Amino acid sequence: MPAERMRCAQHDVVIAAPAGVVYGLVADAAHWPRYFPSVVHVEQLEFDGRQARHRLWDIAEGRVRSWTTRLVFSSDLRRVDFWQEQSEQPLTSMHGSWTVEAIDDRRTRLTLSRTFTVARDDPESAAWAEHTLDTTTRLDLAGVRRHAQHWSDLDELVLSFEDSVRVDGPSELAYDMLYRIRDWPRLLPQVAHIDVREDPPGVQLVRAQTQEADHLPARTTEAVRICFPHAGRIVFKRTLPPGPLAAHTGEWSVLPDTTGVTVTAQHRAVLDPDLCAGTDTAQVRRQVRESLGRESEAALQLAKRHAESAVRVL
């Protein structure tokens, strides 16, 4: 067994929001991708009210990692303890806690403490891991602070919706077209260019240039897509979302039934409060809904044509 080196780190941030609001964001692991910049996706595996087990994917410096984490919630102490069941090298273990402390009725201190071990036989990777943990921790604390401080407006800033299409064709072909995002530029006129890097298999890092109309400038977005072919799902997070969004996550799902297939695009977005300041938030919500809806509708129709054309050929 390789020799290990233990490290301890602690970071905190003061947030202009009530402690209950801050604890609510930290304890809601399913929504971490919205509020934690480094977190791409969270799959809940177990939950009994006080303890939970999740599989989590995050991104740091262009690298996506995944592990399973156990969480223990202490709402009376406003504390969430965690430990990784299995860590990716060069980390060999990690555990820690989120602690929420009320300074007064309107200010809260959020502290993240971590203890982790790294392999001594790979000092370069160990240094990268320590640097990456420090960087992502600061980003995630800032992300929680940014959203918590707008707690009174969160209902207006957050929007979720979905679009669906019925497909009279094989679910495998519908999923295949959604997965083959690198082919979209030659099939969808609004997608000008896409770079896709898939590492490891099933995890796609995407950089895309899109243009909704000729008179509008092209915009560049970046995203991570995690593919679950056996479940007919592709979850995504835009790590460089278009304005006026602070966060954008979602999922493509392909669900067969006895009469055909339903293909659905789900979107969960958070408006950037700074970019929305002084504007009509309701109007911005409508514009975002329409814009993201056009994007997903084009891809849904592409998957439908691909699956149904194969049926006609047969």
Rank of each mutant, 00 (worst) to 15 (best):
E156R: 00
R219S: 03
L71A: 12
E308W: 09
A277G: 10
T221M: 03
K237R: 14
M1I: 14
A192Y: 01
W151Q: 00
Q51V: 14
G49V: 08
A29I: 14
A17Q: 13
V42C: 06
E46M: 11
D121N: 07
V196Y: 02
R78E: 12
R233N: 00
P90R: 05
T117W: 04
V40G: 05
I194H: 01
P185Y: 08
P90H: 08
S93R: 10
P18K: 11
S152E: 13
H41A: 11
P33E: 14
C276Y: 05
A218E: 00
Q301M: 11
S160G: 10
T99P: 02
V100E: 08
D176F: 07
A102E: 07
V100Q: 04
E4Q: 15
W98A: 06
A223I: 06
T92H: 01
S309H: 04
A119G: 02
Q86W: 12
T220V: 00
R65P: 03
W184Q: 09
T221P: 01
R55N: 14
R180Q: 15
A303Q: 02
P201Y: 04
R70K: 07
G20W: 08
V14R: 13
Q51D: 15
T136E: 02
D134K: 02
H230T: 11
V144Q: 05
Q51K: 10
S291F: 06
H150A: 14
A247Q: 10
L91R: 02
R286G: 03
D155T: 13
T99S: 08
Q266N: 04
W83I: 04
A282C: 12
V42S: 05
T239I: 03
H306K: 06
A19Y: 10
R233S: 08
V13C: 04
Q149K: 08
S66H: 07
A246C: 06
G202W: 09
G243P: 07
R145M: 12
D134I: 02
L159S: 01
T258E: 15
F36E: 09
P241R: 03
T136P: 00
R233P: 02
F73M: 06
V284W: 13
T239E: 03
L157A: 04
S171H: 14
T117Y: 00
P242W: 01
T259C: 12
P201Q: 01
A60H: 14
A148I: 10
E290F: 05
T220A: 01
E251A: 15
A247N: 09
S38G: 13
L302C: 05
E198S: 09
H95D: 11
T210N: 06
D134Q: 07
D195R: 00
R305A: 04
E172H: 14
L188C: 07
P18E: 10
Q301V: 08
L25A: 10
R50A: 15
E172G: 10
D104M: 11
A119F: 06
D195N: 03
G260T: 12
D48T: 09
T259V: 13
L300S: 03
T92V: 05
G278L: 08
W252T: 13
